[in-house]
Amino acid sequence: MEATGIGATEPAGGPPRRLQAPGRRYGEKAIQGLLAACGILSVVTTTAIVISLIGPTIGFFEVVPVGDFLFGTEWTPQFEPPSFGVLGIVAGTLNVTLWGMLFASPIGLGSAIYLSEYARPRVRKTIKPVLEILAGIPTVAIGFFAASFILPEIIQPLWPGEFLGGAVGKPFMALAGGLGIGLMIVPIIASISEDAMSAVPNGLREGAYAMGATKMKVATRVVFPAALSGIVASIVLATSRAVGETMIVLLAAGSTPNFTLNPVEAVQTMTAYIGVTATGDIGTGTLDYKSVFAVGTVLFVLTLAMNLVSISLVRKYREVYE
């Protein structure tokens, strides 16, 4: 060993003093490349989906005028001549989403406020995982539950007589699909909103308590407004999940295009149309085939817009306490 300067005081046989790396560290580079590939994959997928949508959609609009498609309310692709007014199935999506959100928002926010502000730690530790299990239930199971239990055992017995046409004898209805979707998104709203409320610094709560605020005032006047953008983000995310949901609406809301917001009518949503049509025997390149892509584009643009709103809200939320 080199016996100069401080090195001389080192114990004999100590590690050699070297500034160069012992090798090229290929492992490190390989892992870096692998991780980068994982990150890029989602970008590639999104781009590929957009590209695959564009071709057939353009082909579709060569046959059907854009104005007829976007503003028509009759969705009857099987009729002769067919009518492709997308509002007929956009209305189905809105119908189902509306009831789902009306059901899920108060329950989701209520559980979030309860978990964040009222529940003792032990209760929170029990309920939150259960909520997350609910989020993990396959949507086909929720759809079947909605069609075979919620519709006949809850909606039909409780529906007030002939109101809006009456609920008895209907095998499918928008409300059943909406409630099924509501069950699916309650955990999304509850979990994200609870995170947003828990992230509100405890100092704010203490400040309010120290002025003689009750728990309710602290929750509604301090925590809720402070967490508002996170809460809104959870609702937007839940809405875009509701809009995109297929299986629940297919099983519980039916496949009848219907330009209505009446909750006891059977409706067809955009996703249900795509699901039904794409699983049937349609020939590649036919108008029906292309219409699936056109509807897919509408759905993509709608959910993309909502996700962008959601992301920007989450960003805004992050800035509040920085």
Binding site: G203, L204, E206, G207, A208, A210, M211, G212, A226
Partner: peptide, 14 residues
């Protein structure tokens, strides 16, 4: 707490 207020270590304005 209405009668006995409190100011904290870290300023905690809303």
């Amino acid at each position: 707490r209405k009668l006995i207020g409190m100011v904290f270590q870290k300023p905690n304005p809303f």
